[in-house]
Design a protein around this nucleic acid. Structure first.
Lengths: 192, 192
DNA sequence: ACCTGAACACCGTTCAAGT
DNA sequence: ACCTGAACACCGTTCAAGT
């Protein structure tokens, strides 16, 4: 005789995400998710394959949200302004979701990684902006330079790696200005 | 009656480092370290306080090695060349030690973080180079921009986050050239 | 002074048994 | 069709007992 489900995949993913946000990935245990949604741990396996799969669902949820945020940040018609806006939007998103942000580019088990399509969707706004800024031939490399810098800055900031004082807001703004200026000169670098 | 030690802190740290290198931090278990050095797990607690302290010893070991590597990379007398050399040395170090590199700037438990002094020693060569490149007033911000970019690029590369094809060596070289050029213009950006 | 076995409180995951 | 208790193989860590 079938019984109605007492929880759902969505509810489980939401619970997992807030646990990661509050306690980091290491704090994410199946038992804790279970008590949060009101069942026992073994029941979770009716809704998700295992813990890695659950982590992946959380990452994809965060990636989708970030995509929306970045898409909304562009469209000023001025590539340099869009670049600044993208960088600020990414940092604001990370500050608002410091726990799960770290998961986005983390060295996480293969089963916990989001699929290629979602990644492509998330990078679309950046690629459009660097295409306008540096031209189609250099767009990909320019995008990688910007994203590497922004993500590196933010992850070091969140990890507490900037310990030599100074104003981090100003350092971030400094980086955007210099990078924007460096990428707008569309002359290709040395071939080698 | 005292018995001679059957292992040592150094041996334990070395074992832990190679386990992290082979299997990631999650693969680092006290049991595995113990069998590697030839004792039972409880014995390890005579040499290290706990697992977090052991992780920290590994991180500090790696940081010391990286410091030596970066110090050896500079000294050409030409700041732009030193910057390129530093960036390449950091990436080569990460490729040679992909497992433990991720630990260096990771969001790791507080007890597992290296102390401030070691971090200062590791950044010294970069700061010297950016001082020569961008002047003392902008040296710290320039250093943060370079390190953020390089670390972001490398960590994304190691995490497999660059999935849109293209030549990563070329993308890294592109980033160095543009950053070097951007930082050498010592005009401060807008104050705001 | 170091090492060990036994024990405790936790994990993730499986599975038979309930409804 | 979902939920549960019991069980298994693992963790990190403590501690009394060995030498």
């Amino acid at each position: 005789m079938p019984t109605p489900a007492r929880t759902s995949r969505t509810e489980i993913v939401n619970a997992a995400r807030s646990i990661v946000e509050a306690s980091g990935v290491d704090g994410l245990t199946m038992q804790r998710v279970a008590t949060t949604v009101g069942v026992k741990a073994p029941s979770l396996y009716k809704h998700v394959r295992n813990r890695d799969a659950l982590v992946r669902l959380v990452v994809e949820d965060v990636a989708r949200e970030l995509t929306t945020t970045l898409d909304a940040a562009v469209g000023s018609g001025e590539p340099t302004a869009d670049l600044r806006s993208l960088a600020e939007a990414l940092r604001a998103f990370a500050h608002a979701n410091p726990g799960v942000y770290g998961l986005l580019f983390a060295q996480v088990p293969t089963d916990a990684r989001p699929d290629r399509d979602q990644l492509a969707r998330t990078s679309a706004a950046v690629l459009r902006t660097t295409t306008a800024l540096a031209g189609p031939d250099l767009a990909l490399e320019a995008a990688r330079t910007v994203v590497a810098w922004a993500h590196g800055f933010i992850s070091m900031e969140l990890a507490g790696a900037f310990r030599l004082g100074g104003d981090l807001d100003r350092a971030y703004a400094f980086g955007i200005e210099r990078l924007g200026a460096a990428l707008v000169q569309a002359t290709p670098g040395p071939a080698e």
